[in-house]
Amino acid sequence: MNQPRGNDHAALTASRPGAGHPALATESLTRHFGGLTAVNQVSIQCHSGQIHAVIGPNGAGKSTLINLLSGELVPSSGKVLLDGEDVTAQDPAQRSQRGLGRSYQKTNIFAPLSVFENCRLAAQSRAGSSMRFFRPATSNREINQRALAALVATGLEAASECIVATLSHGAQRQVEIAMTLATAPKVLLLDEPLAGMGAEESAQVVALLNRLRGNHAILLIEHDMDAVFALADRLTVMVNGNVLESGAPDAIRASPAVQAAYLGVDEITHG
């Protein structure tokens, strides 16, 4: 399965006849930081109903890639496509409104607000313009229900009225995911959703991702290899900004190049 990188466009569409445009795709995406090429000629695809995991050692360019996809970074060259449409020139807010939802590796939520308000604000972003000045924000039943649904999906409904800053780290990570869900995204970019979670919380999130897989395209960056291999339909391995390998989990596991570059190291460090 040693496909040359940047070439799996054809391979994937061929394997999914009639699938139309991938929900999320990049074409030769590149980003330089001065002399450093953090992401080099990366072309990946993510289809609805699929979890595409991106793995790689620290510094491989995974976070830069996700920032390029969400619009927080502008690529030096290459394209980002949502449903086949070029969104490279769009800012994060526009991409979000087109159905792209992301969660952050470093918890990025509204700490002084309640869990519910965190999700309610996320849901409110889908209800058209918020240039509305008179009716109370919390009186919109549809928005409240959408926020509540996100809390139920993540198992947070009991903590709904808690101030986020008082929650445990693991629970804050779940708020992070719940907020992303409350925007009703079609494509989910999850940046290490399991980082810092306990075993029980991790299992909950893995189960949640399995449920979400049905009608979302999910791009997952994760260091927990057990979770990655349990979840991913497709794996891309990045090293030094390049795609080393991309393919089905079994093929990746068997690849000597990947073992040398990444998995092998992992085995050695974990004895």
Partner: peptide
Amino acid sequence: RVLLRSPFGHVISGIRVNEPRMRSLGYRT
């Protein structure tokens, strides 16, 4: 008082607390 309870008021509070996150939630701040 009315303004701060409105959808607009909640959005400006969100911007104060975490503007980048408001953008990634789809608000053009």
